[in-house]
């Protein structure tokens, strides 16, 4: 390979993984220098918008590690980490980025060797993938920014927040939902929110017509129109001007 040195950001939970990383040090276990660790109290604290933001800004890989399932310092924070990571995976895929650029795994405080192995493996994997295309390809960057915006919005967050309960206990009416049913709904909402946020980002740079948006995104103009209508209802998009017969839309500043 070339002398490409991937930039990797790691979110490590304070109680297990960060301690495991320290143990790798105490044990003098060597691993590649590419990882930059951000300490968080719990892997469940990793808001998917954060890794997506770093990927948009050119991180070549983002890893998240927490306590092993069942061993979470905060009882079940890592289960929430897993749910959130599910959303992250969907949005990374939606943005057209290689799935190998993100990773979630579990490292206990006593697993220094395992930590080093995971870092080495992930670094090799990202090195193999090469530089993050978002750095050179504005389309990928736009997609990742749209993914980040989608992850920061109410609908996806509300859905992921309820996932554990909906799938394991059922809704307020006591109706249980299978993981498959949930996944189907999730996929739909991810598609919708991703596209709407992308439209909004495009319009924030330059006002466009539905036709123009369709050409820009490669999405059927009828679908774009539906999204534009929804975005207007949310107050995120408004009419800018009418060119000929085509209304041109612009993005609104949202508080």
């Amino acid at each position: 390979m070339t002398d490409f040195e991937p930039k990797i950001i790691g979110f490590l939970c304070n109680w297990c993984s960060y301690a495991g990383a320290d143990l790798a040090g105490v044990s003098r276990i060597q691993y590649p220098t590419n990882l930059r660790i951000i300490r968080v109290m719990c892997s469940g604290r990793v808001d998917p918008a954060l890794p997506l933001g770093f990927l948009a800004e050119g991180a070549d890989g983002v890893m998240i590690t927490g306590c092993h399932i069942g061993d979470c310092h905060y009882i079940d924070g890592n289960l929430h980490a897993k749910r959130k990571y599910g959303l992250l995976e969907r949005l990374v895929a939606k943005a057209g980025l290689e799935p190998g650029r993100i990773m979630l795994d579990w490292v206990s405080a006593s697993e220094g060797q395992r930590f080093a192995d995971i870092v080495t493996g992930f670094t090799d994997q990202v090195r193999e993938l090469g530089p993050n295309p978002a750095v050179t390809d504005p389309c990928v960057k736009l997609n990742l920014m749209a993914a980040k915006a989608a992850a920061a919005e109410y609908r996806l967050r509300a859905l992921v927040g309820k996932e554990e309960k909906l799938v394991t206990e059922g809704n307020v009416y006591g109706e249980e939902m299978t993981q498959e049913e949930f996944d189907r709904i999730m996929e739909e909402v991810v598609e919708t929110e991703f596209t709407r946020n992308k439209i909004r980002l495009i319009l924030s740079v330059k006002p466009m017509s539905v036709k123009g948006l369709s050409a820009e995104t490669g999405i059927d103009s009828r679908i774009i129109l539906d999204h534009v209508v929804a975005l207007r209802q949310r107050g995120w998009v408004d009419l800018h001007e009418v060119q000929g017969n085509s209304p041109v839309y612009r993005a609104m500043e949202v508080q």
């Binding site: 109290m41 719990c42 469940g44 604290r45 959130k84 967050r157």
Partner: peptide
């Protein structure tokens, strides 16, 4: 206890850790 799960999940991003 400061895990931050609530903050990372809040639909309105109204919670700060």
């Amino acid at each position: 206890k400061g895990c931050g799960v609530c903050g990372a999940s809040c639909p309105e991003r109204a919670i700060t850790m």
